[in-house]
Each structure stands twice: as structure tokens, then as C-alpha cells.
């Protein structure tokens, strides 16, 4: 009887300790990378595009959103831009929007870049890094796939091929 108690006691103490360690390791290594986790609601934001139109993320409810963070100096970002541009009109018709967030560069630089590649999807500039902070974006490019309910489906860091982008756009069709 007493032995039974002791075993239960030891098991409980060990489990508590294991839970504490597990939690510490988990929060340190599996949650830190982005503030916005897969499965959570994408934080709302308002940013102005090159033409002066305001884009509010919550206005896109009901549509999929391909949210791409980029900079003009970032070569991997540059490589995927033409593919995004090519697929944009096709998927726009199917209810998926592409929104490119520039990380606070001069409007002039962004405009020249957009002109050079003939980009047609809306490009907004995050002048004060507020959206960057809210999404805790580290390396560029980082892409958030947001479904029609505003939920983050996937977070992709690094450059994508045309096939990748197509697959991702397909995955968030409403």
C-alpha cells in the first residue's frame, strides 16, 4: 500500500518536472521563430500601396491572401517576383489575392523595382516596420498563406519556384 503510494508520488513528481522541462524547451525552440503561428488568425493591418490605395487585411475576408514580405535588395525576393506576377491575374479570378509588403524602403526604389518587372499586384510599403514587428518577420522573403477565414495556413521563408507558388496559391483558394 505504502509502496504503491510512493510509486504514484514519484511518478507525479517526475511528470511535473518533465512537463516543466518540456514546456521550456518547447517555448524556446519551437515557438520563437514567428509571433504569428500557423493556425492563428493573421494580425490585421492597414498599409497604402504605390497608387495611394489603402489595403486592410480584414477586408480580404472570404478570399485567400498570399502575403509576401520582401525588399528590393534581396535577390531571392527578386527571383520569385516574376512568377508571382505571372500567376496573379489567374488566381485573382479564383479569389486569391497577392499582397506584397515592402519592408520600409523609399517609395522611389519600390516604384522603380515594380516598373522594372512590370508588377501588377498591389505593393504596400511598411514605412515604420509596424507590420514587420507584428508578424515578427526575420529573413526575407517570408510568405504567409492566409485562407478565406483569415487564418494562417503556412509560413514559408526563402525563395519559391513557380511550381511552389502555384501550389501555395492553390492551397488557399476559397
Amino acid at each position: 500500500m505504502k509502496k504503491q503510494q510512493r510509486l504514484v508520488m514519484r511518478t507525479v513528481i517526475l511528470l511535473v518536472l518533465l512537463a516543466a522541462i518540456g514546456y521550456t524547451i518547447y517555448t524556446n525552440f519551437f515557438t520563437e521563430k514567428t509571433a504569428v503561428a500557423v493556425g492563428s488568425t493573421a494580425p490585421d493591418f492597414v498599409l497604402t500601396d504605390l497608387k495611394g490605395h489603402e489595403h486592410r487585411l480584414s477586408d480580404y475576408r472570404g478570399k485567400g491572401v498570399f502575403l509576401n514580405f520582401w525588399g528590393t535588395w534581396c535577390k531571392p525576393c527578386e527571383r520569385e517576383m516574376p512568377y508571382m506576377n505571372e500567376l496573379y491575374p489567374i488566381y485573382k479570378k479564383q479569389g486569391v489575392e497577392i499582397l506584397a509588403v515592402n519592408v520600409g524602403e523609399p517609395k522611389l526604389s519600390v516604384e522603380k523595382f515594380a516598373e522594372r518587372f512590370g508588377l501588377t499586384f498591389p505593393i504596400v510599403i511598411d514605412r515604420q516596420d509596424q507590420v514587420l514587428n507584428a508578424y515578427n518577420v526575420g529573413p526575407l522573403p517570408t510568405t504567409f498563406l492566409i485562407d478565406k477565414n483569415g487564418e494562417v495556413k503556412q509560413i514559408i521563408t526563402g525563395t519559391m519556384t513557380k511550381d511552389d507558388i502555384q501550389r501555395h496559391l492553390e492551397s488557399i483558394k476559397p
Binding site: I13, L17, A20, I21, T24, I25, N28, F29
Partner: peptide, 16 residues
């Protein structure tokens, strides 16, 4: 992770 694990194991050792 392994450094944090070491510290955590020291904690377990202390308790037990």
C-alpha cells in the same frame, strides 16, 4: 537546446 536541457537536468537532480 542541450545547454538548457543540462540546466533543466540539474534542476531535476536538485529536486530529487
Amino acid at each position: 537546446w542541450w545547454y538548457i536541457l543540462l540546466i533543466a537536468l540539474i534542476g531535476v537532480s536538485l529536486v530529487i
